Amino acid sequence: MQSGIYVALSSQMALERRLTTIADNMANVNTTGFRGTEVKFNQVLSNTENKLNAKVAFVSQGNDYLSTDNGELQNTGNLFDFAVKGDAWFGLNTPAGLVLTRDGRFTMTDSGALVSTRGYPVLDPGGAPIQLDPGGGAPSVSLDGTVAQNGKQVGKIGLYSADISKGFLRYDNSGVLPTDPPQSVVDRSNIGVAQGYLENSNVNGMREMTQLIEVSRAFDNISTLTNNSEGTLTDAIKTLGGSQ
């Protein structure tokens, strides 16, 4: 088979992966705290088996990474809604371990536990679940995450960071389970908690739709080129076979 067909197939595999991420982004364009997925493609050089020992450039399947753009903050006025200001995440205690999320839609249980919409405990800077006074009413939260009820400090919302570029898995609550162990963020003036706000998805629907059209067209064009290449090869074989 011609090396050009292999190159085309590698391109189609890469484009198919990009289509998958675009579809996921579009499905979460209105998901609170969601960060879109992008794909980085690398060029792979390979020596073809020919007299010239020529190198042919293939496209790798790509590596997923999260967009670091912040979503727009929406003022809800709900004292149990929170948004992260800066490059950090809330921490949730889940069956899979410590999960990072930018979805700050929290509630207080009857026992006073501060939990996410999925019921996962929200963690403090030390990695322990936050326990509020169930009879103390709605909390007030300062910029550094300190939680108070009736003027008395009862806890602190933890903020965490991790090197997401090392790998991650998606989880509930717009969460990610990073390969790199999360670390508590402390004493950072450019990072904080905004009470009464939520962060919208950072996915730009119009941009994703434009990319969807472009990637779909590229996929179709490569399919056409592959079919034409295979047809040319078949005709050449027939011609050579008939000349003997």
Rank of each mutant, 00 (worst) to 15 (best):
F168Q: 03
T146Q: 03
L240K: 15
K238E: 12
Y197C: 02
A162W: 11
S201Y: 03
G231H: 06
Q183M: 15
T31L: 00
G145T: 00
T76V: 07
G158K: 00
I164A: 12
T48H: 05
T20L: 09
L45Q: 15
T37H: 08
D187I: 14
S201K: 02
L198F: 05
T146I: 01
S165T: 13
L123T: 06
T146P: 00
A194F: 08
V141F: 04
G151S: 06
Q195A: 05
Y197R: 02
K40A: 14
E72D: 14
P95W: 06
T232C: 05
N47H: 11
T109P: 11
M26K: 06
V115T: 09
A23W: 05
G175P: 00
F90L: 04
R188Q: 14
M1V: 10
V185N: 03
T117F: 04
T107K: 10
V193P: 00
N227K: 15
T101E: 01
T21S: 15
F58S: 01
S223A: 15
T32C: 07
D187H: 13
G119V: 12
I157G: 07
T210A: 15
P95F: 08
S142G: 12
V84Y: 10
N63E: 13
V193N: 01
T224V: 10
G137I: 12
V39M: 08
L132R: 02
V7Q: 14
D87V: 11
T31Q: 00
K51T: 14
G33L: 01
D172E: 13
A27M: 08
G136S: 03
F106E: 01
L73N: 03
A23V: 14
S3H: 07
